[in-house]
């Protein structure tokens, strides 16, 4: 119980530290945000006025605290450029990104775990070699190029899938799922590689364990032994899978660019090219928070799965 509390607190601590770093960075830049917004030829008075209006003339610490106070109440502030409410921008884009990540995650698990188990059971047979090739390609082919190739093949070549864009659920389940297929595959392949290799090595280790020989010597069925093995091999796989879930948000930004999906990446890149600092800070914080939650879950699952630390 205390362990869990400790982990939650330390994740929060990291989040606070990260937000401070981001804020400091923004204000360490010699160019004032006002200059960016108003353009190079704005007069000193205009800039001073803009800073006063937006509270940018206050000390950094005060600005940070007032922003952090807002965050507590769910108010992330407003864009300096077009005055949109940042919380609204995020609440519109995050679900799209989250959906993409979820599909890719499920796809990765569904392929990677059986592949890893099979290749551990059939060490050095063709399935193991195949899995190794898939893994090497998976960690090597960059997500965005894979996406481009999938568009060339599945959308332009075969015409089965849309070449990009996001079809909402409301337009029908089939078009929606078709529009998510290629993006999910390109985002998922890398994690198929990572998770299948982890499964392979974890299951392989367990298969060598004395207790598996005992199970076989006691005449348990193959299925039962598989369950015994999987349950033992689970912890590292679950950890890597949960962490992968967190990392996927980063690559999802790139995939969204390839497939022009209106997720967080559009909001973030727009903000970057317009130098809309507060939006950048908030989006990055949200994604980092997702990542930390994934890590936290990984950690808790790990403890929970191991009877020596459970409860």
């Amino acid at each position: 119980m205390f362990v869990i509390l400790g982990r939650v607190l330390s994740s929060l601590g990291v989040l606070v530290a990260v937000s401070i770093v981001l804020f400091t960075l923004v204000h360490a830049i010699p160019v004032s945000p006002a200059r960016v917004v108003l353009g190079g030829d704005a007069s000193e008075e205009d800039i001073a006025e803009f800073e006063r209006d937006n509270g940018l003339d206050r000390p950094v610490i005060v600005q940070y605290l007032s922003w952090a106070g807002g965050v507590m109440k769910g108010d992330l502030g407003r864009s300096l450029i077009d005055n949109t409410v940042i919380a609204v921008t995020i609440s519109q884009t995050l679900p799209v990104t989250l959906e993409l990540v979820l599909w890719s995650f499920c796809l990765a698990l569904v392929i990677a775990v059986p592949l890893g188990v099979l290749s551990a059971y059939h060490e050095d047979r063709w399935i193991d070699h195949l899995a190794r090739v898939v893994a090497t390609l998976g960690v090597s082919i960059p997500t965005f190029w894979l996406g481009l190739m999938l568009i060339a093949w599945g959308a332009v070549g075969l015409g089965w899938f849309p070449a990009g864009g996001y079809v909402p659920w409301s337009a029908g389940a089939k078009p929606h799922l078709l529009s998510m297929t290629l993006p999910s595959v390109s985002l998922g392949l890398y994690y198929v590689a990572i998770i299948s290799r982890m499964t392979r090595s974890s299951v392989g280790d367990v298969l060598m364990a004395d207790h598996v020989r005992v199970s076989r010597a006691m005449g348990l069925s193959r299925g039962r032994i598989l369950i015994y093995v999987l349950r033992n091999a689970l912890s590292p796989v679950v950890t890597v899978a949960a962490m992968s879930f967190g990392y996927m948000f980063g690559w999802a930004l790139i995939v969204e660019q390839v497939f022009t999906i209106p997720g967080m990446s559009r909001a973030l890149l727009n903000a970057i090219f317009r130098r809309d600092y507060l939006v950048i800070v908030n989006v990055v914080l949200v994604i980092t928070a997702m990542f930390l939650v994934a890590n936290l879950i990984a950690d808790l699952l790990y403890r929970w799965l191991d009877p020596r630390t459970a409860r």
């Binding site: 981001l22 990392y247 990542f291």
Partner: peptide
Amino acid sequence: SIPLLIWAIAI
């Protein structure tokens, strides 16, 4: 505990 890609983008 810092996700590499997002931070590369952020910085």
